[in-house]
Design a protein around this nucleic acid. Structure first.
Lengths: 131, 131
DNA sequence: TCCATATTTTTATAAATATGGAAATGAAAT
DNA sequence: ATTTCATTTCCATATTTATAAAAATATGGA
């Protein structure tokens, strides 16, 4: 997966309703769910649901199949796996041990948490704006 | 990691400049890079860089340390690992085998790619808008 | 064909975001 | 104390995004 499509996928998931949609679809498995059911469960207008589903579809994260009058959406697990793979690469390339479980396979749990001096700085602050 | 912070983190990475920033910081490792160097490397105005760095900091994806006149930013690998973990959970909960490598630890590579019928539908289309 | 249902497109509007110039802040050097 | 350098805040502007009402499209049944 290259940067461009990763950004589109990330943007697609970076929204309350869409992330909720995707979670429902993951839960539903390959069988998926019709757009109407999703709209009802999440209590959003049909047009709004269509907008978000289109966004997810364009990002390649969901698949759509027409079944009679309904259109059934399903999570594209392969695409999601590719996204996770991209992030894993871009997270762990230099410091595999620090990424915690979930980033790399939970093989070596013996992370002695030492020997990684940050040059010669002090005063660590986690954020700035709105702490 | 709960949904709210995952969305913030996803949104922070779902942007060209910010993803590029993060990739540079991952490459730089725990030592990090000063804001000025990032601005120069990515050819964006200082004010713009500051804006994006604030966004990443607020999302908890980067750390900042003042070193003399410079402020050094570094990727927060632990936070990134948490994000990847969240996505992995929300991707593979129902269909671990289909997520491909990168989602689950590349243990069982014997995915026979069969037996996952989607109920009883036809006409699979990957997208709609702008295909 | 006509009607009912499911979804999408169109259109408009409000809100959020990205951008960079100019001024302000913080820290070091003279 | 003044100057210099790095970064941030303030401000204005352009773009993108989320939302929903109304109209359009597609499907199935009477």
């Amino acid at each position: 997966m290259e940067m461009k499509s990763a950004i589109v996928a990330l943007g697609a998931l970076a929204q309350d309703t869409r992330l909720a949609i995707f979670r429902l679809l993951v839960e539903a498995g390959p069988a998926g769910l019709p757009a109407g059911a999703l709209a009802e469960q999440l209590a959003v207008a049909p047009a709004t649901m269509s907008f978000h589903l289109a966004q997810l579809a364009q990002a390649g994260l969901v698949t759509s199949i027409r079944d009679g009058r309904s259109i059934i959406y399903a999570a594209d697990f392969e695409a999601m796996g590719a996204l996770v793979g991209y992030l894993t690469e871009n997270c762990c390339r230099s410091q595999p041990e620090q990424c915690g479980p979930g980033c790399l396979p939970p093989a070596r749990t013996t992370i002695t948490s030492a020997a990684k001096g940050a040059s010669s700085h002090e005063k660590v602050s986690r954020s700035r704006r709105g702490q």
